[in-house]
């Protein structure tokens, strides 16, 4: 019985460390990534995974129905809302012509589609802004 508890404790410990590491990566991504799209890309994934690990660790630690169901609901909401939020931010950045990082490869089709609808204003997205 005691052995099982130790294994569980270690497992919870590992989950929490991993969760914290992914959250650290999210913060590092904000600092290191060069433009809004790469930052969003980095953040959406690492925050979701990081919070997932932390909440899963809470579930295992408390082992109560009330805590577990709430943690599960929180995981579900995070997995549902973070992708939507990052899509909205990415979309508004793209359509308002926020400059892409200089190393970004642009698809030719995007250039061809340009002007067929409002935005993306790629022609003035380059050097003038910022």
């Amino acid at each position: 019985m005691a052995g099982e508890t130790v294994i569980l404790e270690v497992f919870i410990f590992v989950l929490m460390i991993l969760g914290a590491l992914f959250m650290l990566v999210a913060a590092l991504g904000i600092l290191r990534m060069p433009d809004v799209f790469t930052r969003m890309s980095c953040n959406a994934k690492s925050v979701t995974i990081g919070l997932g690990f932390l909440l899963f660790a809470f579930m295992l630690h408390f082992r109560e129905l009330g805590v577990g169901s709430r943690a599960l609901a929180t995981i579900a909401f995070i997995a549902l809302t973070i992708p939507v939020a990052s899509h909205r931010i990415g979309r508004s950045a793209y359509l308002s012509g926020v400059s892409l990082w200089e190393g970004t490869i642009r698809d030719e089709l995007g250039e061809a589609l340009k002007g067929t609808r409002e935005g993306p204003h790629k022609e003035d997205a380059g050097d003038e802004k910022r």
């Binding site: 060069p34 970004t104 490869i105 698809d107």
Partner: peptide, 8 residues
């Protein structure tokens, strides 16, 4: 190591 691109 990133090599970003916008694709359709």
């Amino acid at each position: 190591p990133i090599d970003p691109a916008v694709v359709h």
